[in-house]
Amino acid sequence: MKKQPDILCIGSVLWDVIGRAASHMRVGSDVPGRITRLPGGVAMNIAMTLRRFDMTPALLTTIGRDAEGDELQHEAERMGMICDHIYRSDDLPTDVYMAIEGANGLVAAIADAHSLEAAGDKILRPLDNGALGSAVAPYDGPIALDGNLTEELLQDIAQSPLFAKADLRVAPASPGKAERLLALLGHPSATLYVNLEEAGLLCMTQFDDSASAAAALIARGAHRVLVTDGGKSASEGTAGDIITQTPPAVMVTRVTGAGDTFMAAHIASEAQGLDRAAALTRALNAAATYVSGETPL
């Protein structure tokens, strides 16, 4: 297997336990459906999509030295990801995410990413010890970074010489963790991938559309942003230069992982030389195909 990565995926790699029902659900609903367990987490979801675009990601994360962790790493290696640099902890269990989805979308979710938070900067050691880079020769390729890292660690990353030459692509893990990205808002090479709600949290307001949200984030100091708004619109831009497109209309059958799929497809498209408009279109099409259920996770 290829040992030189095309991109680093830093953040959450865990088991997704997803319950899906074909009916509309509300709090207290008890309905028939299907429950699946699949590799997940923001970093893993991004890495899986990157593999479908023939990119080879390396995972920087923590996985427990338990049966669940062994199985999870085996799955990642089987899919063609580089797992040599994963921090395997003797004391921390493998993280897990649990969600309930109905025909009306995500009903509820709990992310137990405490092991990733507890591991802290141990997952970044390969960027400092020469395995992937060092302070004198920092890693200079693309990095997909997820907001499951602690706010303190994200602040350290924003100032660290280990990331000085990287092309940072950053996504919040959820709206509840979006404000952690404030630490990276002014980073000179960071591209932020957020949805409309997350953009509002970062700007402490509400937006009616993705273009106005993108403009506000740039005004707050963001180097570059991509803002999505479900099936309504998506905008990409830098200061004074914002483009907006509408995704294709599809029947939504799943939502968990859609934003990660969009982000990974956009990164891969740019890595393959597509221009801004074409990269945004391809990412929107990939996300639409994903939520329609036509592409396996």
Rank of each mutant, 00 (worst) to 15 (best):
L154N: 05
Q155E: 15
Q155V: 09
D156F: 09
D156G: 04
I157V: 08
I157Y: 02
I157C: 06
I157P: 08
A158R: 12
A158K: 13
A158D: 03
Q159I: 14
S160W: 08
S160Y: 06
P161K: 13
L162N: 06
L162M: 13
L162D: 03
F163E: 02
F163S: 00
F163P: 01
A164P: 05
A164C: 13
K165W: 03
K165S: 14
A166N: 05
A166F: 01
A166W: 00
D167Y: 12
D167G: 11
L168V: 02
V170K: 04
V170Y: 01
V170T: 03
A171V: 06
P172L: 07
P172I: 07
P172A: 14
P172G: 08
A173S: 12
A173I: 04
S174H: 13
S174E: 07
P175G: 12
P175N: 11
P175W: 04
G176W: 08
K177M: 09
K177P: 02
A178R: 05
A178C: 08
A178M: 06
E179D: 12
E179V: 13
E179A: 12
E179P: 00
R180F: 12
R180V: 08
L181A: 05
L182F: 02
L182C: 12
A183V: 04
A183P: 04
L184E: 00
L185I: 01
L185V: 00
L185M: 10
G186E: 05
G186Q: 11
G186F: 09
H187Q: 10
H187Y: 04
P188C: 12
S189Y: 09
S189M: 13
A190D: 01
A190N: 05
A190Q: 03
T191S: 05
T191D: 00
L192N: 00
L192W: 03
Y193I: 07
Y193G: 05
V194R: 04
V194S: 12
N195G: 11
N195S: 10
N195M: 11
N195Q: 12
L196P: 09
L196Y: 10
L196E: 04
E197M: 13
E197R: 12
E197V: 15
E198M: 10
E198G: 06
E198T: 06
A199D: 03
A199L: 10
G200Q: 07
G200V: 04
G200E: 09
L201W: 09
L201C: 00
L202C: 02
M204W: 06
M204T: 13
M204S: 15
Q206T: 15
Q206W: 07
Q206R: 15
F207H: 14
F207L: 13
F207W: 07
D208C: 14
D208L: 14
D208E: 15
D209P: 11
D209W: 04
S210T: 07
S210E: 01
S210L: 11
S210K: 11
A211E: 15
A211V: 14
S212F: 05
S212Q: 15
A213W: 06
A213Q: 06
A214F: 09
A214E: 02
A215W: 00
A215T: 08
A216F: 01
A216D: 04
A216P: 03
L217T: 01
I218K: 02
I218D: 01
A219N: 10
R220G: 00
R220I: 01
G221D: 03
G221A: 05
A222G: 02
A222I: 03
A222P: 00
A222S: 08
H223C: 08
H223R: 15
R224D: 01
V225T: 13
V225H: 07
L226A: 08
V227L: 10
V227A: 09
V227W: 07
